[in-house]
């Protein structure tokens, strides 16, 4: 085939990719940025400026919510890692054959179900007339119905639950690829379990830890369902602010600025995590 022919083939192959990325990712984000820079000064008249961003910084409710969302998301990520790591290690290294497949599937199945259904489950469990409250009353631990919903604990439970898969799967994959003899060699050379964990297992699992953390952090930060349904009207989650600016208040300019701030926050933290651990985006995400 001629060189021109293969060149044409390359262009044809690249066309859908470029069409997708340009029209659905790049241009919309540029558009979002442009809108975030326009201030409404009258009916259908706009000026360019950073006014929307100024509103964000002058209104404590906004940046408090922003900081709270970031903080809670980081906490949720750390918790998910702490809870998920032993489970991933167990699946990857302490089981084999059929029981390994079964355990892994048991981890996967809950996440094929819509997040809405999962959150609904937690609502039934935690609400005042819910299962947990009734169970504790039955045990006599509490006297009357107790509301476990609509607080930070409920939000955290839901966030960790909803993100667990995205932590466990990359961890199992990287831990699976750790040669058992490395662990044995460490042990043979006199290491304790703790120093094997610190010096061999964790460094090896680092790409999995980073990719798991990035995805979980991003999912928590961008989550809307869980904070709204489990945290209630006053859950103070930043995506809630974006939603209300767009849908309820119809202030798209401020909403776009909020969106851009959220995007900036997630990019900064993802970038910092990659830099700190010496990983690259292509290596950790492109599996």
């Amino acid at each position: 085939m001629s060189k021109d022919g293969s060149r044409l083939g390359l262009i044809l192959l690249m066309a859908p990719l470029l069409l997708w990325l340009v029209t659905l990712i790049i241009l919309p984000h540029i558009g979002l940025f442009v809108v975030s820079l326009s201030e409404k000064v009258g009916v259908r008249t706009y000026e360019t400026g950073f006014g929307n961003y100024a509103v964000f910084f002058t209104e404590p409710l906004y940046w408090n919510t922003f900081a709270r969302t970031a903080y809670m998301s980081i906490m949720a990520t750390a918790l998910t890692l702490l809870i998920g790591f032993p489970v991933a290690y167990y699946i990857a290294k302490l089981t084999r054959g059929r029981s390994k497949t079964t355990l892994f599937l048991m981890c996967l199945i809950p996440f094929w179900v819509s997040e809405l259904v999962r959150t609904f489950g937690w609502m039934i469990l935690l609400r005042e007339t819910g299962v947990l409250s009734s169970f504790l009353q039955y045990l006599g631990v509490i006297n009357g119905p107790v509301e476990f919903l609509y607080n930070d604990f409920a939000i955290m439970t839901g966030l960790v639950y909803t993100s667990m898969l995205f932590m466990v799967v990359p961890l199992v994959t990287t831990l699976d690829s750790l040669d058992d003899s490395l662990i044995e060699a460490g042990y043979d050379l006199g290491a304790s379990s703790l120093s094997i964990l610190r010096e061999i297992i964790i460094p090896h699992a680092m790409p999995g830890i980073v990719s798991g953390c990035i995805v979980v952090f991003m999912l928590s930060l961008g989550n809307y369902l869980t904070p709204i349904l489990l945290g209630g009207k006053d859950s103070l989650w930043f995506t809630g602010l974006i939603y209300s600016q767009f849908i309820t208040r119809f202030n798209w300019e401020l909403g776009s600025a909020f969106g851009f701030l959220l995007l900036g926050l997630s990019s900064v933290i993802v970038f910092a995590a990659l830099k700190l651990t010496g990983q690259s985006l292509g290596k950790t995400m492109g599996r």
């Binding site: 919309p28 979002l32 995805v215 991003m218 974006i242 959220l262 997630s266 995400m285």
Partner: peptide
């Protein structure tokens, strides 16, 4: 790594 809600609003805008 783009939050879903941002994809939504950017396409909307």
């Amino acid at each position: 790594i783009i939050p879903g809600i941002i994809l939504g609003i950017s396409i909307l805008v």
